[in-house]
Write a protein that binds this DNA or RNA. Sequence first.
RNA 1: GGCGACGUGGCGAAGUGGCUAACGCAGUGGUUUGCAAAACCUCCAUUCAUGGGUUCGAAUCCCAUCGUCGCCUCCA
Length: 444
Amino acid sequence: MILYNTLTRNKEELKQKKINMYVCGVTVYDRPHLGHALSTVTFDVLHRYLEYKGFKVKRVQNFTDVDDKIINKSKELKISAEEVAEKYIKSFFEDMDALGVRRADVHPRATEDMKEIIEFIGNLIQKKAAYVSNGSVYFDVSYSSDYGKLSRRNLEDEIGGTRIEKDMDKHNSADFALWKKAPENETHWDSPWGIGRPGWHIECSAMVRKHLGETIDIHGGGLDLIFPHHENEIVQSESVTEEKPFAKLWVHNGLLKRSGDEKMSKSLGNSFDVRDALSLYSGNSIRLWILQSHYRQPSTLDDDSLKIAQKSFQRIERVLSLDSEKGFNTSNFLDRFENAMNDDLGTPSAIATIFDLVHEINKSNSENNRVFEGIMLLKKMLLILGFNITEKNLDDNEIMSLINKRNMLRSEKNYNEADNIREELLLKGIEILDSKDGTSYRNI
RNA sequence: GGCGACGUGGCGAAGUGGCUAACGCAGUGGUUUGCAAAACCUCCAUUCAUGGGUUCGAAUCCCAUCGUCGCCUCCA
């Protein structure tokens, strides 16, 4: 299994069998949009595939539940910040469950790891990597000689075009807050430096250390987090551990764009909630749409893209409902599938293999050959990619009586009424399939 | 200004030195059907932004040009 490492800009082989993986989660001030789904599904598939290949994976994904945006939301909704966080953590899980995302092994929250965060900051101050200024604490980026190694930028270059506003409390404009002084009437915690709230970057460093240890194997997140978020995580953690590497391999997913070519984001007002998408399309369709492009490429969400994915997934579903008593031999498909996945999670090629298998199954079926092994293999691949293929429950009796009635009408050549029944069933999501062996049906 | 990504058929999207350029959607002609749907069989890019170069050989490597986008501020 090889993966592209943002840190080295190379594909690298995963050698160790035990994988500690940390994925940056969301700030819970609103419902997740499809960009969050794209990232979360990507790391869900990575987790599943690694396990399938025999790796022992521990995945941790955090919730940022202390943040100015949460506080603003709480004022807007006139509920507490805790309630805002709780509400949107719940909706995150609901939406991701619907997409078939498995829970991480640990979902830590900043508020629950406050003790470790404060200790971490204290440690940095002790090492003189951070300083207290006017009730806040800042990291001193000049402490580290290799600050910028992930995003490949150096501080001198930054100064010219920087948009960072001059902050009198900082020694250097690139320094970033570890702890921010907060007013008495807002959410705050006690610390050796006074009441306040943690900065954003520090929570991930503290959580990684607490839940996974000093060095982790894979650190993931969206491409937009490379700078400054992940860069800052690295410098904080490696300052504490004395240069011991923080994360060996960095995996970043490409960002989701809308058809106007702009990135989808809340601030641009062009975001598309997962929940809205789920009201129109199945979780499987959304997952297929995500996996049909490579995770490192930017994806574009057009008006039609989910609709097309829905139709595409139906082609797979139709095969799953074929009579599986029969069987046929398919040997090279799994090899193709694994080869695609082994190379930096090549889900588009893996899915192309799935469609080729679907075609092969249909072909065999139309020639009255065995399809059993083909369907078993197809199900195996779909499960590895996290699709939900549990059988739907059908009310057989009611449907069969309508089908029998229709066939009666057909034999009387009363096609108008026969077609009405077909229409009626179609509206209920039941599709009729006539063949010379009789009439069958399936859910659509 | 600095760092980075990308430009492949009507649309989406793989492939990154060598078989006839995957796969999905849409479309074409057929088989099948009472008609459909589905499925199957056909066809649908002599060509991979443009112009040079390297090579026996390039969509794939190099250079230039044009274009699009991301990060540098909260962001998956």
